[in-house]
Amino acid sequence: MRVITAIGFAAETGAQSYIATPLTKAITKPTLEAAVKICGLSNTKETYFHHIHKDPKTMKDFNTFMSGNRSTRQHWIDWFPVESEIISGSHEGKDEVLLVDVGGGKGHDLETFLEKFPRFKGRLVLQDLPGIIDNLKGLNEAIQAIGHDFFNPQPVKGARAYYIHFVPHDWPDEKCRDILRNLMTAMVPGYSKILLNESVLPDRGCPPHFAASDINMMSIMAGRVRTEGQWRELLQSIDLQIIRIWPSTDSGDQEAVIEAMLKS
């Protein structure tokens, strides 16, 4: 309790007498409680995600955290110009793929996309590991769900955009190159795009929350939360061209969409 009170997770009212603080109450909320649980895994030689996918209880905690975390932030379509950058110029036809959500979990991002753009032309494809896709319930019929490991070649060829939300920060640079190269083999030069919806940290003066998040990703999965300079270096190393970085309009948020294409 001396340590807990020293860092503000509780307060002392006397010798061995304590009361809750706002931080105490915050970590009892389902989203943050789930976050604590999913950060304490051990005793396995498997990768983090292969390990948690085998444990329904841990997977439930992971989805609780991800859903709650996203619900408090702007959605990427609220600041990224979808109509001008994705829908405009896309190939028309019901069999053409407009957007592939790579590692998209239960499809929350595509469901939100459908709500805002109900009359777009093209197909929406959700991809995640087969264990996730096989247990989906209630997914909108307009979304095609495919079991896929993004460390394997991308099976959906020639989509207008391949969207990845908070995936690369889970992996070191070399693994990210593997993920991106698998997408690049499916892209049409001058047409297909990769949309990386990620944190983009400033090269100096990083806010405390995001600095701590970087340490968290490193300790759990050998990943990293990258600065703008690190993103540019990573994509340039595999001949991806950054068209533009679109930052969130939420004050203080470091989330952005990195729009990239094959180098011409």
Rank of each mutant, 00 (worst) to 15 (best):
D134V: 14
E141D: 10
E228G: 07
M187Q: 02
G93Y: 04
D134Q: 05
K157N: 10
R2F: 14
G68K: 02
K193S: 08
L234N: 05
K60L: 10
A142I: 03
I19V: 14
E85H: 06
K137R: 14
M221R: 09
F113Y: 10
P202R: 01
M261H: 07
T112G: 06
P56K: 10
H169P: 04
L136F: 12
H75A: 00
E96P: 13
D170C: 13
Q144D: 10
K37D: 01
S248G: 07
S90V: 14
L110I: 14
Q127V: 11
E141S: 13
K37A: 13
D250C: 02
P22E: 06
Y48G: 06
K121D: 15
V125D: 02
D95N: 14
P207R: 02
C176I: 08
E96Q: 15
D239L: 14
A222T: 09
Q127D: 04
D214T: 01
E12Y: 11
N69H: 09
D239M: 14
L235E: 11
Q154I: 06
A186R: 07
A212C: 09
E115Y: 01
A20C: 13
A161V: 10
L41A: 09
T21K: 04
N182I: 13
L99E: 00
G103W: 11
N135E: 12
D101F: 11
I242L: 11
A6P: 05
I86N: 01
L32V: 08
G223C: 07
V82D: 04
D109H: 03
E92M: 11
F166E: 06
Y48Q: 00
F120C: 07
E255V: 14
D170L: 05
Y48M: 03
I86K: 00
I215N: 01
V167S: 12
V225D: 14
Q127N: 03
G8W: 07
I87A: 10
K54N: 15
L139D: 08
R160L: 02
I215W: 03
L136S: 08
T112L: 13
T47M: 09
Y191C: 05
L110S: 03
T64R: 12
W79A: 06
Y48V: 12
A10G: 05
A159N: 10
H75P: 01
A15S: 12
Q127G: 09
L235I: 09
G205V: 01
P118S: 11
A256D: 00
V257S: 06
E115L: 05
I242C: 08
I146H: 05
P202N: 01
M66L: 15
P30F: 02
A222S: 14
G205T: 03
N140F: 04
A159T: 08
M66V: 15
H53F: 15
E228L: 03
L32H: 11
M59Y: 09
I245D: 01
L99R: 00
G107Q: 08
T64W: 02
R181D: 12
D101H: 06
K29W: 09
K137C: 07
C206W: 02
L136D: 04
S219R: 07
S71L: 06
G229L: 05
L114F: 03
T249F: 01
I243R: 15
H75Y: 13
E83L: 14
A256P: 05
G190A: 03
W79Y: 15
W76L: 15
M217C: 08
Q144P: 00
R123H: 09
